[in-house]
Design a protein around this nucleic acid. Structure first.
Lengths: 264, 264
DNA sequence: CAGTGGTCTAGACCACCAA
DNA sequence: TGGTGGTCTAGACCACTGC
């Protein structure tokens, strides 16, 4: 491990970070597992513990690793209860007392998911737009999924209310063998299932949000009128190495829920 | 500076951080100014440079301080061009190629603000809701402002399009002397003006987003039909010490713009 | 050139966890 | 009790800025 020559100087810890990232990508340490201790990594890379520390610090800040004092450093996973809805910002109005940072977005209040209905699942060829977003060629294989999520409102009273309609496109090459059967029988959240079944770990996402009215079909699926204003959330989700692997368009009902965002 | 006794142990750097925060709050160092060098602060607090460093690192991560190699560490300000729209996530569709993190939210593409029209400015008594959000008592003095922001679309062609309608409530005690005149004659962005004129530095905010239809009055001000779906963004903005000081409800047109959010 | 933040090291010690 | 991450130090050196 050498410090670099002048052109675009990259500090040591940053090179170590890249090496750790490489191991994560290669699956050397799986989600949920512990990575080697800081001292081990230091001797492995021939640097001091402090340098490894700084590399891990950054990866932890990006939610790729989780540090636990006294136990070790672990690969982030969507399987743990606290991060299951890491990318879902829609929360009940009763939750989130507008105290940013006071708690995670997950499961505050009574955000009880009652029902996940898969309304479509098929292998398709990527349209131009989907291909561009997933960095594929038009016509490449993609998996298309459509589903409806229903929640119970306050205190679990009343019946389940269809709240989210999602259209999902996945890069076909990473999800060989995914079909309606396997989807339907999985009880885990989707991203947790992607992780355990396909070794795909979602790490980051970018969303574009608009207000729209639903089409007739969409209104039907969500059981709303066509003049109901809905949040339209276009997401691109990425794995390690900034590889886009999922495009997801969600339609959210926001009558008794809202999209929560903390700015800093 | 002593390391603390056992009950709820707080590390040294964290105590230093609190002290720096205190000085920021007290206005010892003003926005835009440099704070003392790490070495100075270290000797001032009687700790090592590394400890001060870690305290500053956290404040920099929270965007309260800005580090500039070779120059010093500066108090964050809304006056600099790059952070003027730090809390505005609405960007033109042409910008933001869905490459999260690739650039800031400000001024990418052709996000040209053409016109800021103040449609109301008065001193009012806080309603129950506003009072609660601002941690005041119902009936306490607040400043109410309403304004419309108009932008030019792609390449500055065409006329200005009213795009954002904002209702703003400010804690009266912090904005004595703010009136329509002073508002109207200020050319700077609102948060920059708050900073220079009232010593109020917005540091953090929390937003709740919904899809709604406008009222008749709102539709009028934005020059849209009443069935146009709009983004409704309820923001509470905070100064140092997590003190809420502004409530702002925005109605955004999202026909050719979107609210951009990066999840991580 | 001096002054600032940025990196890297080596070592001591502390807090937390599990066995 | 031993192993892990977390804190703190002191010192050396590097990269960047402005005089």
């Amino acid at each position: 491990m050498q410090t670099q020559v002048t052109p675009s100087f990259s500090p040591l810890y940053s090179q170590i970070k890249a090496l750790i990232l490489q191991s994560l990508q290669a699956g050397e340490w799986k989600p949920g597992e512990a990575i080697p201790s800081e001292i081990d990594l230091a001797s492995r890379y021939g640097v001091s513990q402090g340098t490894v520390r700084k590399a891990i610090d950054e990866l932890a800040a990006e939610n790729l690793l989780i540090r636990r004092q006294g136990k070790g450093t672990f690969v982030a996973t969507h399987a743990t209860r606290q991060v299951q809805t890491r990318f879902l910002r829609l929360v009940p109005d009763s939750a989130s007392e507008n105290n940013p940072g006071s708690d995670t977005y997950a499961e505050n209040g009574k955000n009880i998911l009652v029902d996940r209905t898969i309304t479509a699942c098929s292998r398709e060829r990527a349209t131009k737009d989907i291909a561009k977003a997933l960095r594929l060629k038009t016509g490449d294989a993609v998996v298309y999924i459509q589903r409806v999520l229903a929640y119970k409102d306050k205190d679990g009273k009343g019946s389940a209310i269809p709240t989210i309609l999602e259209d999902i496109w996945l890069a076909g090459s990473s999800f060989k063998g995914l079909n309606l059967e396997r989807l339907a029988q999985s009880k885990a959240p989707m991203y947790a299932m992607f992780e355990s079944e396909f070794g795909v770990n979602m790490v980051r996402a970018s969303e574009k949000i608009r207000a729209v009215n639903p089409s007739k079909e969409q209104a039907n699926l969500l059981q709303v009128k066509m003049d109901e204003p809905l949040l339209r959330v276009e997401r691109i989700a990425y794995t390690y190495n900034d590889t886009p692997i999922e495009v997801r368009t969600g339609l959210y009902r926001t009558a008794s829920r809202h999209y929560k965002n903390d700015l800093q």
